[in-house]
Computed example of a mutant assay.
Amino acid sequence: MKLGAFSVSLTVKDIHKSKSFYEKLGFQDLGGDITQNWLIMKNENCIIGLFQGMFEKNILTFNPGWNENAQNLESFTDVRELQKQLKENGITMLTEADDSTEGPGYFTIEDPDGNQILVDQHR
């Protein structure tokens, strides 16, 4: 199962303080918009998202169709196909991608310990 680029989406209290902290760890801006309270940062192949006021807790994130540099992959498994496979394997969906659409879409699931997982396809 190809889930795409992996990152950890962190809920932060002050995005500017968090950005400064992670820069000291060697992370650099990869994308996002700090004026909208979200920022994606990268250190080698490690990716984190900083999100202020958007989520209640940290989320594991996968992006089908993207590599770790947010570049499009030629071949990938569509989010709706991933959702279908997971449902067939008995995974319960918290939110579901609309099966009648194409392109961008997402779903969320939760692991046995309550950790949320977002599978978010941007194209």
Rank of each mutant, 00 (worst) to 15 (best):
T11M: 04
D113Q: 10
I109K: 06
I47F: 13
Q83M: 11
V12E: 13
T101V: 08
F21W: 11
E88M: 03
I40S: 06
L25Y: 03
L118K: 04
L60W: 02
L73P: 01
R80P: 10
G103R: 04
L39G: 04
G90D: 06
Q83F: 06
N63I: 11
Q71Y: 04
K24G: 14
S18K: 00
G49P: 02
Q28V: 11
K17P: 14
K19S: 13
Q71P: 00
S20M: 09
N89P: 01
W66P: 00
L86H: 03
G53M: 00
E56I: 00
Q85V: 08
E68T: 06
T101I: 07
A97K: 01
E96M: 01
I47M: 13
P64K: 05
K42D: 01
L30W: 08
G26A: 10
V79E: 15
G105F: 07
D120W: 11
L10N: 08
S100N: 06
N45K: 15
F107W: 12
S18P: 06
L73F: 04
I59A: 05
D98L: 02
E96C: 01
D98A: 03
E44Q: 15
N72Q: 14
I15Y: 13
D111L: 01
I34G: 01
R123C: 13
G90M: 04
G65C: 03
L50G: 02
N67W: 13
E102L: 03
T92S: 11
S20V: 02
M54W: 15
G49A: 01
I40N: 04
N72C: 12
A70G: 12
E44C: 08
N115I: 14
S20E: 11
N89D: 12
S9Y: 11
G105S: 07
T61N: 13
M93R: 01
T77L: 14
L82D: 07
K84V: 13
S75P: 00
D29V: 11
I109Y: 09
P112G: 12
I15W: 09
S20Q: 07
M41V: 03
E81A: 11
I34E: 01
E81N: 09
V12F: 11
D29S: 05
G105E: 14
D99V: 08
D78I: 07
K17Q: 15
T95R: 04
V119A: 07
Q36S: 10
D98E: 09
K87L: 12
G103K: 03
G53H: 10
K17L: 14
D78Y: 04
E56H: 13
V119N: 04
Y22D: 09
M93C: 06
T35I: 02
Q52S: 08
I117E: 15
P104M: 11
Y22W: 12
N45D: 15
A97H: 06
Y22K: 00
